[in-house]
């Protein structure tokens, strides 16, 4: 019963937050634009483009896919060593 209640609560919070994010109309810019960028431009030092600009088309998505698969595999492979099962007899 408790688990059902917690599950329902988590679902309700997730739906509520999603509703807020979708319904509220701001652009959801990062604070680097709204704060850092604003003050940097006012001071005459706007941000320049990165020296290695990987944000081109779907190229980043491809790297994310490859890296996600490889990282997920290695993380799962080492999981038991990183997080051994909890010893219940210690309690």
């Amino acid at each position: 019963m408790k688990k059902v209640f917690i599950g329902f609560l988590v679902l309700a919070v997730a739906v509520g937050l999603t509703f807020l994010v979708v319904r509220v109309t701001p652009k959801w810019e990062g604070v680097d634009d709204t704060v850092v960028g604003k003050y940097a431009e006012e001071a005459g030092r706007p941000a320049r483009r990165a020296y290695i600009d990987t944000d081109r088309g779907d190229l980043l998505l491809f790297f994310f896919l490859i890296a996600g698969v490889a990282g997920g595999f290695v993380g799962g492979y080492c999981f038991r060593e990183l997080f051994p099962p909890q010893k219940k007899d210690q309690a």
């Binding site: 604070v31 680097d32 960028g37 941000a47 020296y51 994310f64 996600g68 997920g72 993380g75 080492c78």
Partner: peptide
């Protein structure tokens, strides 16, 4: 290897506290 690959495993270029290039 895991650490290196996880470096790419993110869906967007979010920016916030990081001070951008050239500022």
């Amino acid at each position: 290897i895991y650490l290196l690959f996880m470096a790419f495993a993110l869906p967007s270029t979010a920016q916030a506290m990081h001070i951008s290039e050239g500022v």
